[in-house]
C-alpha cells in the first residue's frame, strides 16, 4: 500500500516531449492529436521585441493530477473510475460505458477515448505496465533528460518525493476546486 504522487520541477522542463513519446510507447497510446495521457503546456514569452520577458516563458508538463477527491470518480455512473490500493485513479475498462461524463467533469482535460477498448483512458502512473513489472519509476520520469519528475510514495517520509515536498515550496493546479491533486509543481 502506498500513496503515489509526483513532484515536477517544471522550470527544468525543456519541452523535448520525450515524456510524451515514452508514455505512448510504454502504454500503447495511439497516435493522434486527441490521444495523449500526458502533455507539455507551453507558455510563450510575453512582451514585444526587444522588451521580452524571458522569465515569462515556461513549460508546464502535465497529466492526470491523480486527485484525492477526483471529480471524475464522483460522476462515474458505474464506478468504472476507481482509486486503486495505491491511491491512483484508474478506469476499469470492463465497466466503462463511455458516457464521457468524466471527460467533461475533469478540470484538467486529462482524459480521452482509447480507441483500443472504446473506453475512457488516462494516466495511471504506469500502474498496469511498469509498476506491474516491479519497476519503481514511470515512463515519463525515467526518460526525462532534465529530471523534471520525481515519483514516489507520499506516505513514506523518507521517499525522495516526500523529502522534496518538505524542502521545497510547491503549487497544485486548480487547487481552489478542492480536488486535492497529487501532482506538485515545485517553485
Amino acid at each position: 500500500m502506498a500513496r503515489y504522487g509526483m513532484a515536477l520541477d517544471y522550470k527544468n522542463c525543456i519541452n523535448c516531449k520525450a515524456c510524451e513519446v515514452a508514455c505512448k510507447e510504454e502504454n500503447g497510446v495511439w497516435l493522434g492529436a486527441d490521444k495523449y495521457r500526458i502533455w507539455v503546456g507551453v507558455k510563450e514569452i510575453e512582451g514585444e521585441y526587444p522588451l521580452l520577458s524571458i522569465a515569462s516563458s515556461t513549460f508546464y508538463p502535465g497529466q492526470c493530477m491523480q486527485c484525492e477527491n477526483a471529480p471524475c470518480q464522483d460522476v462515474c455512473p458505474t464506478n468504472a473510475t476507481y482509486y486503486d490500493e495505491n491511491g491512483v485513479v484508474r478506469v476499469d475498462a470492463d465497466k466503462c460505458i463511455l458516457c464521457t461524463y468524466c471527460i467533461n467533469a475533469c478540470p484538467y482535460d486529462a482524459r480521452y477515448i482509447d480507441e483500443r477498448t472504446l473506453t475512457v483512458d488516462k494516466c495511471t502512473f504506469c500502474s498496469d505496465t511498469r509498476l506491474a513489472r516491479g519497476l519503481t519509476t514511470t515512463a515519463c520520469q525515467n526518460t526525462c533528460p532534465t529530471k523534471v519528475r520525481t515519483f514516489g510514495d507520499l506516505d513514506d517520509p523518507n521517499s525522495e518525493i516526500s523529502q522534496l515536498l518538505m524542502n521545497r515550496e510547491y503549487k497544485q493546479m486548480k487547487s481552489n476546486l478542492g480536488t486535492k491533486p497529487k501532482l506538485f509543481y515545485l517553485l
Binding site: P77, C99, T119
Partner: peptide, 22 residues
C-alpha cells in the same frame, strides 16, 4: 453512449450513487 448494454448491467451491479447520471 458507447456501451448501452453494459450500462444496463453495471448500473445495477456497481451503481455510482454519487453520479447524477446514475
Amino acid at each position: 453512449i458507447g456501451h448501452p448494454i453494459r450500462m444496463v448491467i453495471y448500473n445495477v451491479l456497481t451503481p455510482g450513487f454519487t453520479s447524477a447520471i446514475w
